[in-house]
Design a protein around this nucleic acid. Structure first.
Lengths: 141, 141
DNA sequence: GATGGGGCTTCCAGTAACTGGAAGGTCAAG
DNA sequence: CTTGACCTTCCAGTTACTGGAAGCCCCATC
């Protein structure tokens, strides 16, 4: 119950799950504002800063880019935000995730099929090598 | 029907679907050996080189790392390879793909759920922001 | 008082796999 | 002779960190 307790970066790291290095990196890259410093030039953080960093960590864990996180943060702080702006960001991200999942899934299925058809013994015959050797390559994007 | 025709990098690019820049990059990073040069110091390639680059392109399109592609290439060239070595590489890659797909799928589901519950209008209330604000962050890996 | 151990600081480099761009050489056509 | 389309090398930027070096600050101990 100390509303104005100032934390050092290691404590914030423990509270948010983010490495200290990453917190400094977020500051350096402008995703969060520069931390205040105490007499030792050490960074100090408030509970609000911890909340902000938790927000960032959570958005990152959902796969949003740092650029997106920046926009989400400003929407988060904007009491007059329109939820459609947040939703639009989320939907763009969703589309991107779906595309990436589909790409990986296609690779996965091909690999699984090839691996399943490969004897996996000491002989050289191998459908995986044959596929790589012969099949035309797919276009990306 | 010219078995010893020498191609320039642009032609190889057209034949393999790989940008010239990427072919040079593969050479520089040691994934393929240095191309012979003609009198102008231009790189020249044989049909075998084209085959090798197609192999590389295809392996890359299946998501193998360049390091893996290097190993696959040496297995490809090894007439005494054991198919189990190829298969092992593929299975490790498969595991990695599955993990990445699962990670993305989890994100995707969360985002889809949040976006679906968001009104997406001009009002500020937004379950997406609330989730980022409040929920504990998941551990990666 | 010297020393040791954390934690903090900055700065530099490396990761993966390219991609973009600058500056310049070569060659054939018009 | 100049243009245009190739080719060359080299450097920088991308994404989101992560590792490591060198050095300060503070506290505890011998």
């Amino acid at each position: 119950m100390q509303p104005d307790s100032e934390l050092m970066i290691g404590e914030v790291a423990a509270l948010t799950g983010l490495p200290s290095k990453t917190i400094r990196y977020y500051e350096e890259s402008g995703i969060i504002e520069s931390a205040r410093r105490n007499d030792n030039r050490y960074r100090t953080y408030s509970q609000i800063d911890v909340q902000t960093l938790r927000f960032v960590a959570h958005a990152r864990s959902l796969g949003f880019s740092l650029k997106d996180v920046g926009e989400l943060l400003s929407l988060y702080r904007d009491r007059n935000r329109a939820s459609k702006d947040v939703r639009r960001l989320a939907l763009v991200h969703l589309t991107d995730l779906d595309r990436r999942i589909a790409d990986l899934q296609a690779m996965r299925n091909t690999i699984a099929d090839l691996a399943q058809r490969c004897h996996g013994d000491d002989r050289p015959e191998c459908p995986i090598i044959e596929e790589l050797e012969g099949a035309p390559n797919r276009r990306k994007r």
